[in-house]
Simulated assay, not measured.
Amino acid sequence: MTAITTSPDPLPARAARDSFWTRIAAELAESIARGIYPPGQRLPSEHALAEQFGVNRHTIRRSLASLSSQGLLRVTQGSGTYVEEFAVDLVLAKRTRHHQSMALAGMRGALRVLASSTVRATSAQARALQLPARSTLLRLQVLGEAEQQPLHISERFFPLPRFEQLDAVVRETGSITAAFAAHGVHDYTRHESRITAQMPEPEVAAQLRQPAARPVLFVESVNVDTEDVPIEFARAWFAGDRVTLTVTHDE
């Protein structure tokens, strides 16, 4: 009679390996909750954590990736893994101002111009700004920060020649409101905001310092002057793990 041999069942070993990274992720999350690793602190290296828990670096990497996807950690290429520092509640109201939103949150914040150019309006941009097709616009790529942390990145479009010096004022002051005032617009309001969730492009994820696999909040908005004339069309991507958007209707 021929003996029948069976190979060991690999499933228990695989389950054990899987339990290692989930247990380590749970222990690290507990350490973060207890303040052992406070907000903003860099975690020990993957090598150090592997030695601490007696596992290989691949297991540690899987644990850190899980916590990062939950918004507890931020991985900065070439620097390390950090505990996320804060979540900011930004208000989208009839009068939405970055500086005021930061002040209400007890933080300092500013807008930083990353790039500027002159472009021809697409059909969507022309429609939003109530301009003829292919009108000339000023395009600003702007990063919104709080306490040196990126909160949102945006593309903002302004009619030309009305706002031809707006770029220089925003670079100097870090404020769209100040730039509008320098062009004679001393008050403006939000006409509409459209909010959706989406996966970010790699460039957006890199600017927000977040994984490309983590969703962002995408907002399209139009601002108008006191004569109800559109003066800005914006597309903004907000870091979903650092920002809560509150829409108010009391103005």
Rank of each mutant, 00 (worst) to 15 (best):
A3Y: 07
I4K: 09
S7W: 11
S7V: 10
P8T: 01
P10V: 02
A13E: 13
I24F: 03
E30V: 01
E30C: 04
S31K: 09
S31H: 10
G35M: 00
G40S: 06
G40L: 04
L43R: 00
P44N: 02
H47Q: 11
T59V: 14
S63P: 03
S63T: 00
S68M: 03
S69N: 10
Q70Y: 13
L73G: 05
T76V: 15
T81F: 05
A87Y: 08
V91A: 02
R95Q: 07
T96W: 15
T96F: 11
H99F: 12
H99C: 07
Q100N: 10
Q100C: 09
M107L: 15
L111S: 02
R127F: 02
L129H: 01
P132D: 10
L143G: 08
G144F: 06
Q148R: 14
P150C: 07
L151F: 05
L151E: 04
P161C: 05
R162F: 12
D167Y: 04
S175W: 04
T177D: 15
F180Y: 15
V185D: 05
D187K: 09
Y188N: 12
Y188M: 07
R190H: 07
E201T: 10
Q207S: 12
Q210C: 02
V224Q: 08
T226L: 14
E227R: 13
D228M: 12
I231N: 05
I231L: 14
F238L: 01
H249F: 14
H249E: 13
H249D: 14
